[in-house]
């Protein structure tokens, strides 16, 4: 059996790049992402899986990376906020947030954007109710959600047209 101090080797793909990292068993995925890989766009806003600031995509699903062990990421394909816009452009969700003033302090924003990706994947044309329910896993303290809902609505209507 392994000892507690032992580091486990984890291999996964993140934002398209393959990585192998040694991690203590107790290391949370969010800390691995932020500290070992320097991808600090993923934030930690709580410790009980309520706020969603740490939301990333694992194998195409939005998850709270503060509630996943780094060692569990073995073989996973992870996308963080930094993976959406490798260049200097904004992706459509980010652009909609800018257009509709859907962010203020910006701390919840990366997690919110990652959740919106999931929401639009599940429901390409969500109603306002669907949007508000679909963002239940993310807390924003600045915007009152009003403009976040507007931003998502703008994407939904585009979805219907196409």
């Amino acid at each position: 059996m392994s000892t507690r101090e032992e580091r486990h080797t984890v291999t996964f793909e993140i934002n398209g790049a393959r990585k192998t990292v040694a991690a203590e068993a107790r290391r949370l995925l969010v800390h691995l992402i932020r500290e070992d890989l320097g991808l600090t766009g993923t934030h930690v806003g709580c410790d009980t899986s309520q706020c969603g600031a740490c939301t990333v995509e694992i194998d195409g699903l939005a998850v709270k990376s503060c509630t996943v062990l780094a060692v569990s990421a073995e073989g996973a394909s992870i996308t963080t906020i930094e993976g959406l816009t490798p260049g200097t452009d904004l992706d459509p969700i980010q652009a909609a947030f800018h257009e509709h003033h859907a962010l203020q302090c910006g701390f919840c924003t990366p997690g919110m954007v990652m959740s919106v990706r999931q929401l639009l994947k599940d429901q390409p044309a969500p109603s306002e109710h669907d949007i508000r329910r679909g963002l239940a896993g993310n807390i924003c303290r600045c915007t009152g959600y009003h403009n976040i809902v507007r931003a998502v609505e703008s994407l939904a209507s585009k979805g219907e047209q196409s």
């Binding site: 899986s49 969603g52 939301t55 699903l61 998850v63 709270k64 509630t67 996943v68 999931q118 896993g137």
Partner: peptide
């Protein structure tokens, strides 16, 4: 149950 991210896991 909870929220989409929690339901995914």
């Amino acid at each position: 149950i909870a929220d989409p991210q929690v339901r995914n896991r």
